[in-house]
Simulated assay, not measured.
Amino acid sequence: MPNRFVVEADGGSRGNPGPAGYGAVVLDAATGETLAEAAEYIGTATNNVAEYRGLIAGLQAALAIDPDAEIQVRMDSKLVVEQMSGRWKIKHPDMKPLAAEAKRVFPAGRVAYRWIPREKNKHADRLANEAMDLGKQGKRWEPSQSSADLAAVPAPVEEPLAEPKAAPVGWAAPADLGTPTTFVLLRHGETALTPQKRFSGSGGSDPELSPAGRRQADAVAAALAARGTIQAVVSSPLRRCRETAEAVAARLGVEVRVDEGLREADFGAWEGLTFAEVRERYPDDLDAWLGSTKAAPTGGGESFAAVARRVALSRDKLLARYAGRTVLLVTHVTPIKTLVRLALGAPPEALFRMELSAASLSAVAYYADGNASLRLLNDTSHLR
């Protein structure tokens, strides 16, 4: 698995244009540990130029640590986030070369962008202000001059990449946020293991759809074609999902795109076993797994916390790719529950409190300000 970093960046100008500076910090996505800081006084500039300079510095700092890393950028500048995500056009001549430079640091698809409120970008904001203060004195910012050492950074949350945002208030998002990106979440049709309630993850036999599962795939394909809202189809790489996705895509006349991040959890030595069989053979490991999302199944399985990190990364990449569109994601129980949990800002134990039937539909809408709204959960009306 590649390293995953969070880059938080900010920039400011005292006068706009006026004396300006930027700050950026690179964090380990899994632990929240601060890996690098960058800040600089850049003379007279606008807020937007300083923000872009902060973004570039943060990406370059991440590149110096690991050029193969996957990055989530978090900024409180909606302008930069929307422009770099491709949702807003870049019109200002000062912004175009800066945006182009930022895009060149990492290959396309390895960086996702997310807006955060200003109060959650305090680290980068502090660095930017330190650089501006030192610039007024004719001094250059250095890491040793940072007003708070790295040990003073707040303790990380369990899943930094998956940090939820508050849901929009009321029945709909404000009109100025534009058309949301909607993920319609389809659990694959049944396999031979599904009715037996056996663990079937990404480390098992990769079963095909059963005859019942193929009928379910045809039924959901007909229902989605009748609605006429799906604009793209993305699937887990596992066979049961690809077969379900292909049934829908054939009806819609679109191609299926595969995303590795949408695969099911790896259940290790539990693959192919029932819950009762796991309870009998691995009682202590099962209790630990049920008690913490950081616990992994026996034999090198994947914890729910690890699944959440990769699912959140895929979510952000797909949001950037399909901004403002309605996309069908054909995936599994754990990724769907994870996307729903994160949209609601629910605690990890919510994973054990949702029911998802085979070939069921759920839906989450994502807005330009980073908020999400759950629209549908476990709909099986098309199967009746």
Rank of each mutant, 00 (worst) to 15 (best):
P2N: 15
F5W: 05
V6A: 06
R14C: 05
G15A: 10
P17M: 12
P19E: 13
Y22S: 01
A30P: 00
E33Y: 00
A36R: 10
A39V: 01
E40I: 00
Y41N: 02
G43N: 09
T44N: 13
N48M: 09
A50G: 01
A61R: 07
A64V: 03
P67K: 11
E70T: 04
I71R: 05
I71A: 06
R74N: 08
G86K: 12
R87G: 04
K89R: 15
H92S: 13
E101Y: 04
A102L: 05
R104N: 12
A108Q: 12
A108H: 10
G109R: 12
R110P: 02
V111K: 04
R114T: 13
N121K: 12
H123C: 02
L134K: 01
K139A: 13
W141E: 01
Q145K: 14
A148F: 10
D149E: 14
A151F: 03
E159H: 08
K165D: 11
K165V: 00
K165E: 13
P168F: 03
V169R: 15
G170S: 11
F183Q: 03
L185T: 01
R187Q: 02
A192K: 11
Q196H: 05
K197I: 01
S200M: 13
G203P: 03
S205M: 14
P207L: 02
P207S: 07
A217F: 02
D218P: 00
V220W: 03
A222G: 05
A223M: 13
A223E: 07
L224P: 01
L224M: 07
A225E: 15
R227N: 12
G228H: 13
I230W: 10
A232D: 08
R240C: 02
E243F: 00
E243A: 11
V248D: 04
A250T: 08
A250G: 06
V254N: 06
V258S: 08
D259P: 00
L262F: 13
A265S: 13
D266W: 06
A269Y: 08
E280V: 01
R281T: 08
Y282R: 06
W289K: 06
T293P: 15
A295N: 12
A306S: 11
A308C: 07
R309A: 13
V311E: 11
L319M: 07
Y322A: 10
A323E: 05
G324M: 09
R325D: 10
R325I: 00
V333N: 14
T334V: 15
K337I: 04
L342I: 09
A343V: 02
A343H: 03
L344F: 04
G345A: 07
P348C: 06
E349G: 00
E349Y: 01
F352I: 03
R353I: 00
S357L: 08
S357Y: 10
A359F: 04
V364S: 02
A365G: 02
Y366T: 01
N371I: 00
S373F: 06
R375P: 01
L376R: 15
D379C: 12
T380K: 05
L383F: 04
